[in-house]
Amino acid sequence: MNIQFLGTGTSTGIPMIGCSCEVCVSKNTKDQRLRTSVLVQSLHTSIVIDTTPDFRYQMLRSKTTHLDAVLFTHQHKDHIAGLDDIRAFNFFSGNAMDIYANASTEEAIRRDFYYAFSDNKYPGTPELQMHTIGEAPFFIGDIPIQPIQVMHHRMPVLGFRLGDFTYITDANYIEQSELDKIKGSKVLVLNALRKEKHLSHFTLQEALDIAQLTGVPQVYFTHISHQLGKHDAINAELPNHVQLAYDGLSIRL
């Protein structure tokens, strides 16, 4: 299985035009982050987790020409706003795109992209096949998926374990029963927004603490605000088995 990080940044404190902080003016491409998303590919199946506002560019930049399904973590705009651009994959495959989301995320998608679910659809609108998921494991193609429920302040959010790979973003609390689902993974991806306390995201230290509890041998941090600092400087502070992810990073399991 191959995992490619399409984006590792966040709309919370995202670098803005005119900002002169050290991250925003950095020449290191690892400090230039699109919104958080990941592409997971096996021999027979390609899945993207979340369609960010940068989705179209992420697909072009990664040269992705085929997708089988989209998994959604939650309904915030920085994770669903790019869904309309799924229509390109409809065009080339001739099929509706399978969408997997929990009930609250499905409700938001049906509301925000109402025209894709209309009885009298306008030609060229996205073709979506919705699948409502909960806590039960399931398969997409040949990839096994175990949902992991985490909390994003007061909002339940889904993380996912796909075989030996676990992906969690937009979380600030994980119950022990859900942590147990992560154990045994070979790679864990976890959000680490910044060093200062935040209402709904893990800080760098909180993410390190969670990583230690799981015992996963290789950990990457994502959903990184420019407030965290420059990639190379923060990476140098981390344990050997923990790294900051960056846009374009690929790992193979």
Rank of each mutant, 00 (worst) to 15 (best):
I251V: 14
A103Q: 01
H231P: 04
A245R: 09
R110Q: 10
T105W: 02
V23Q: 08
N2M: 14
H131G: 03
N95M: 10
L6P: 08
I86V: 15
V38D: 13
L67D: 09
D180I: 05
G215P: 14
A103P: 04
I99D: 02
V38L: 15
T214E: 11
K230R: 15
V40C: 12
D180P: 05
T10R: 03
L162W: 08
P156E: 08
L249P: 05
R87P: 00
I210N: 07
G7W: 07
L179R: 10
K195W: 02
T125W: 02
Q75C: 09
D54Q: 08
D142F: 13
I182W: 06
S104M: 08
F139T: 11
K121V: 13
E196F: 12
Y115M: 15
G13M: 03
N2F: 03
H226K: 11
G134H: 01
P156W: 01
S250I: 06
V242D: 13
D247Q: 15
R111H: 06
D85W: 09
D142R: 05
I17Q: 11
E196G: 14
I14H: 13
I109N: 10
L199S: 14
L179Q: 11
D85S: 14
T166M: 03
E107T: 11
F202V: 11
G94M: 01
L6D: 10
T203Y: 04
V150Y: 00
D170Q: 04
F160H: 14
G215R: 12
A88N: 05
Q75L: 09
K186G: 03
K181I: 03
H152Q: 15
L67V: 15
N172E: 09
A211R: 14
A96T: 12
E237G: 02
G134M: 01
H153G: 06
G248K: 09
L253P: 05
L244D: 04
H74C: 02
S11L: 08
Q227R: 04
